[in-house]
Design a protein around this nucleic acid. Structure first.
Lengths: 162, 162
DNA sequence: TATTGTTATACTCTATAACTATA
DNA sequence: TATAGTTATAGAGTATAACAATA
């Protein structure tokens, strides 16, 4: 990560011996983003064999756990905009992991359901993610982990005004 | 956020009363991402008046705190790829917030320095981010906040293999 | 009128390969 | 040959406006 310096005796001000991020370290968001970077990269490799990504797996899991879910409900649950969900579901539907059934009582809406293949892939991928999490969070005791989640949820409560 | 249901007495399986995310709630990454979403959206609004984003402010802060920094060092510190840094710096340089000085001892490299305008904007933006953080993390005691940061840093240690 | 899903669009962030000029 | 910065490019995530069909 850090680079070997090729000129130990260079003139002052031309280079920096060690990068100070003291100001940034005062911000939780900075550490949160860096941690997220590590998780995203590792999760990406974890889910690649399944042809899934963080967002597609999230959608699949929620559909498996909530058969009949509507797209607007799913978008709300995933905290993404409706238009962005459409392409994700197109992908899952094309791979025949989910189906979009018409809702008889509201012909505008779709009832999302996982296929058998979808449920099986979901199960396997969730197991892989469990292993990925165990690997990344092995330094945290169960108590620390619970505290971390509590802290993260308190942040989620803060809705953006306007 | 959650939607009012238009048909309280609809046929079973067509809709879902309350979305269960029990499976996902078992994953730290899920809560981390949701927290990150909230922070990113709020930070975006916070930095908009300054014409900055999370990444451009991060770069600016590091340059202010480390005069003479090289681009490769900065990319390492920011945990982004070198090519992606170039356009960020182009933006900061075009706005005359930083300069790229040639390093006399190594004509391949640039010594990054903030201008007076850059240092001033940085100071104001950092103050705004402090307020933003205080707003988002007000539920956390100072101790909890420190524990959160410790947990996040332990995750950062986990480098991605390969 | 309001809502569901959709299209189109744009911006941001991330990742990789290949180039140039220096070392 | 290796490194610093660059160009080009592609994929992925996010955000908004506007539309057709339906309620």
């Amino acid at each position: 990560m850090s680079r070997a310096k090729s000129h130990p005796e260079r003139s002052a001000g031309d280079d920096v011996a060690r990068v100070s991020d003291a100001t940034l370290r005062g911000f939780v968001g900075y550490d949160l983003k860096r941690a997220m970077n590590v998780i995203r990269a590792d999760l990406r490799r974890t889910l690649e064999p399944f042809g899934l990504r963080m967002l597609t797996l999230t959608a699949l899991v929620l559909i498996v756990d909530n058969p009949g879910l509507r797209q607007s409900q799913l978008a709300d649950a995933m905290d993404i905009e409706r238009p962005n969900l459409v392409v994700l579901l197109d992908e899952l539907e094309r791979r025949e992991l989910i189906v979009r059934d018409r809702v008889p009582t509201d012909r505008r809406a779709y009832a999302l359901k996982a296929t058998l293949a979808g449920r099986r892939l979901c199960e396997q991928a969730v197991a892989a993610v469990n292993a990925h999490e165990a690997r990344l969070f092995c330094d945290l005791t169960e108590e620390r982990r619970a505290e971390l989640i509590t802290a993260l949820r308190s942040i989620q409560q803060k809705t953006v005004e306007e």
